[in-house]
Amino acid sequence: MEVRTIKVFTTVDNINLHTQVVDMSMTYGQQFGPTYLDGADVTKIKPHNSHEGKTFYVLPNDDTLRVEAFEYYHTTDPSFLGRYMSALNHTKKWKYPQVNGLTSIKWADNNCYLATALLTLQQIELKFNPPALQDAYYRARAGEAANFCALILAYCNKTVGELGDVRETMSYLFQHANLDSCKRVLNVVCKTCGQQQTTLKGVEAVMYMGTLSYEQFKKGVQIPCTCGKQATKYLVQQESPFVMMSAPPAQYELKHGTFTCASEYTGNYQCGHYKHITSKETLYCIDGALLTKSSEYKGPITDVFYKENSYTTTIK
Rank of each mutant, 00 (worst) to 15 (best):
L153R: 01
E168F: 00
P130R: 01
L88G: 00
H176P: 01
Y274N: 03
G53I: 03
S25F: 09
Y274S: 03
K46T: 15
D180K: 14
G33Y: 01
C271V: 14
T5C: 14
G161P: 02
N111S: 01
S279W: 08
N147H: 11
W107E: 14
T76V: 08
E296F: 12
R184D: 03
I152P: 01
D38C: 11
A150K: 01
M170W: 01
T198R: 13
Y28D: 00
G82F: 11
L254S: 02
D38H: 10
E239N: 13
H18C: 10
K229S: 13
D135I: 09
T11E: 01
F56W: 01
K158R: 10
L126C: 11
D38E: 14
M207H: 07
C227K: 03
V99A: 05
Y214A: 07
A115W: 01
F217Y: 06
C193V: 01
K7E: 08
Q134P: 00
V185R: 06
L290A: 11
Y113V: 04
H74P: 00
Q122W: 01
E52G: 13
I15M: 10
A262P: 03
V236P: 03
S310A: 09
C271W: 11
T258C: 13
T27K: 10
T199H: 10
I301H: 15
Y297D: 06
V185W: 03
E52M: 12
A231D: 04
H176W: 13
C285I: 15
F305I: 14
Q216N: 10
N309I: 10
P78I: 11
F9D: 10
L173M: 11
L118Q: 03
K280S: 12
Y72A: 14
F242P: 05
G228C: 03
G267N: 10
P249G: 11
F174D: 07
C285S: 07
L59D: 15
T312E: 11
T313C: 10
T302V: 10
L102I: 02
D303T: 10
Y208D: 11
Y36C: 02
Q98R: 13
K293S: 12
S240E: 05
A115I: 01
D165M: 11
K106F: 05
Q197M: 12
F9E: 07
C271L: 15
Q175T: 10
P300R: 15
K46Y: 14
F70Y: 00
E239W: 05
V189W: 11
F32H: 15
T120G: 09
Y57G: 02
E253Y: 08
M1W: 06
T232Y: 11
V22A: 15
Y84E: 00
G299D: 07
L121V: 13
L102R: 01
G53F: 13
Y96Q: 01
T199E: 14
R167P: 04
G257C: 03
M207L: 03
I6D: 00
T76M: 11
R184L: 12
Y265H: 08
F259Y: 06
S25R: 12
L290R: 09
K44I: 13
Y72I: 04
Q196L: 10
N14C: 09
I315W: 09
V203M: 15
T91P: 01
Q230F: 11
G161N: 07
V304R: 04
Y252A: 07
G101S: 06
T43I: 01
Q237Y: 13
R167G: 03
T278Y: 13
V203L: 15
I15E: 11
K44N: 15
C156L: 10
G220Y: 02
T211C: 11
N100S: 15
A177I: 09
E215M: 05
D23Y: 10
F128I: 00
E204V: 06
I286M: 01
D287F: 00
D23M: 10
L118S: 00
V160Q: 00
A108I: 05
V304L: 05
N147F: 00
T55I: 11
Y269A: 15
Y214W: 08
Q238H: 03
A231Q: 07
I15Q: 14
E162I: 06
Y36N: 02
T19Q: 15
N110Y: 05
Y57F: 15
Y72G: 08
I152D: 01
Q134L: 04
S246V: 02
P248H: 11
Q238P: 04
L212F: 00
P241N: 07
Q197C: 08
Y73W: 02
T91I: 04
L37Y: 11
L200E: 14
T35V: 15
I301C: 06
T43Y: 08
K280W: 09
S213G: 07
N14S: 12
Y155I: 04
V58Y: 03
T159W: 08
T55K: 09
G267E: 15
V188M: 09
D77K: 04
W107I: 10
H18N: 12
D135S: 10
A231L: 04
C271A: 14
E239R: 11
I286K: 05
I315A: 15
W94I: 01
L65P: 07
S279K: 04
Q216E: 13
V58I: 15
L118Y: 02
T226E: 14
V185G: 05
E215Q: 06
I124L: 10
G267P: 12
T103A: 01
E296Q: 11
Q134R: 11
I277K: 06
P241K: 12
L17D: 07
Y155R: 03
G53N: 13
G272M: 05
V243Y: 03
W107P: 15
E239I: 13
D180C: 09
L81F: 10
T120C: 15
Q122K: 02
T266A: 09
I6V: 13
C182V: 09
T35S: 07
N49M: 15
Y269W: 08
N61S: 11
V304I: 14
Y311L: 07
S79G: 14
N100W: 08
S279R: 00
R4I: 05
M207D: 03
E296V: 13
F70T: 04
A87N: 10
E52D: 14
D38Q: 10
F56R: 00
V3R: 12
